[in-house]
Design a protein around this nucleic acid. Sequence first.
DNA 1: CTAGGGTTAG
Length: 717
Amino acid sequence: MAAKLSAVVDVHHCNVSYPSDKNQPPHFTASPLRISTKRFTIFCTSSKSPPKTAPGKAESKKRKTPSLSEQLKPLSNTILSDQPNESHQLLSKPKSIWVNPTKPKPSVLSLQRQKRSSYSYNPQIRDLKHFAKKLNDCHPADDAAFQAILEEIPHPPNRDNALLVLNSLRSWQKTLLFFNWIKTLNLFPLETIFYNVTMKSLRFGRQFQHMENLANEMIENGVELDNITYSTIITCAKRCNLFDKAVQWFERMYKTGLMPDEVTYSAVLDVYAKLRKVEEVMSLYERGRASGWKPDPVAFAVLGKVFGEAGDYDGIRYVLEEMKSVGVQPNLVVYNTLLEAMGKAGKPGLARSLFEEMLDSGITPNEKTLTALIRIYGKARWAKDALELWDRMRLNGWPVDFILYNSLLSMCADLGLEEEAESLFEDMKGSESRKPDSWSYTAMLNIYGSGGNADKAMRMFEEMSDKGVELNVMGCTCLIQCLGRAKRIDDLVQVFESSVDGGGIKPDDRLCGCLLSVVSYCEGEDANKVLACLHKANQNLVAFIKSLEEEDTKFENVKQEFKGILSNTAVDARRPFCNCLIDICRNRNLRERAHELLYLGTMYGLYPGLHTRTEEEWRLNVRSLSVGAAHTALEEWMQTLTKLVQRREALPEVLSASTGAGSHKYSQGLANAFASHAEKLAAPFKLREDKAGLFVATREDVISWVHSRAASLASIA
DNA sequence: CTAGGGTTAG
């Protein structure tokens, strides 16, 4: 199926060798490749081609939670007949499996929606609305006052009157009080609709327990639960994050012989989407299709969301193809969902063309559409498209809200558009309804921080406290990064202390990573001051740095400590931690330690694709490495290549190293640093003129480099 | 919110 297709193993991708380590924490993605090697080496010292498939991959993909079909087994034995439903069929158009027309199609959903009774006009509507307003205005804690108002109901509380009032109450507490009052009056039997209306209010207040009590009361009193009841229960459970409850009530429908209709069905689809259970969503979807269901835009929005969250482009394409084959025209929400999904799948170009398609079909974008696109262009650093879209927004008068304003500011930060951001920021200050908030200030701190403008960043910081806008942890991180780069360590300490001790900011792993990077390029007293800050946020990390500096610390200890630290670190922050720690070692002349850390980082999967091989070319990819880590990796690689040459093993024609072009305006330097280190090693890599950040050497270059180096070493000896 | 399902910011 789609999710599996995108997980296909990249055969050019797995050449790092790992000694087996059985004690890895469960959340480390162990490499599927375990070429056993006794040597302490990061790169494979065998030139044999890597296997096409990775042993153990299937193992690691094995699901830990039961699939929906497993969960619904009791159901499928009673109601559904077993059907072949292989997941790999999903990308193709579902075929009709039910060839024999005398056998009925097994059905998982009713093709007809729940019918609802029509309201008749209530001549007392004015009086009753007024009455409901009095109940709504009554103080929420004053039960006696509420009861007193109830007694003054202007018309007899018969079925229609009671229903009208019940529908007009706002808070769930009052709805429940009124519902119970009607029940005690016992003037007429309470039909399903009374429960449904009450439940709707409970859902609004996220009162699942009350809701479940009512549902059980219905069962006890023999009141029928219909599709509206179930979908309300299921979506309430979902909003309260009680997903098992949602599934439980859904299963109960089948057990009692009630077929879900498409509304209930897509509510459940969304439950599985929220749980990110892609396969379950698809299984349900496919079963629905096999039952003759023609999904509507809401169902496609759910599908789009689930693939977007998985970053699964094949899945998104599948949704688009399905809509076409079913004949459903996407609406605004579907487009918004798919645009968002394209962004998450890292496809800005396809998001752009989908947006144009949406405009061509006559749909006007709303704030959410534009927020998604602006964000995508910003993250992709597509300045031209971002600015062009911004122009079109103004030109066409497309809707703008506060979130979109802040997203535009963040986009400016991503692209380093300082002037544009400043003028937008001034606009916001001048407006009544969109005064800059902590998001807006964070974006400005980000801009000045990444631009190295410490003075302006500090001015923003002061302005925030003047205006009473709270600094959040991300703003704090941007500011500290900026002050660190400007070597304004005393200001840095002051900002850290005022925001962590006084301002109630809880340092997160990103902030720690930022402090760690400042430590890596500071010396002496400055480094100690920053370490003291870091100590308040993460004691173990500081202890680990100290142990790295001690000569008699054994590799085994480094390994254990580092593993412990990484396990307690957010996944996104692990590689930056490792990069900074390597830089710290290099800047303190602890080169062996740097190699140990790079080795461990590779083992724990922090540098996937560090080394890639095809038959013609081997490449060292250091674009996600810090300068020190890149130096270390280059040294390591040259050592490995030396061994291969000495053992006369085959090398590919081309050996290359990629530092990346550094698409961020302020993130240059890795290529330069790499070039000078290659020069220092006299390594034969030449920067390719036509490809930014790509260093290339031929096989012959490398072989002669190894020989000349051996010769010079021999002459020294 | 006139009984039920889907979409916006590090």
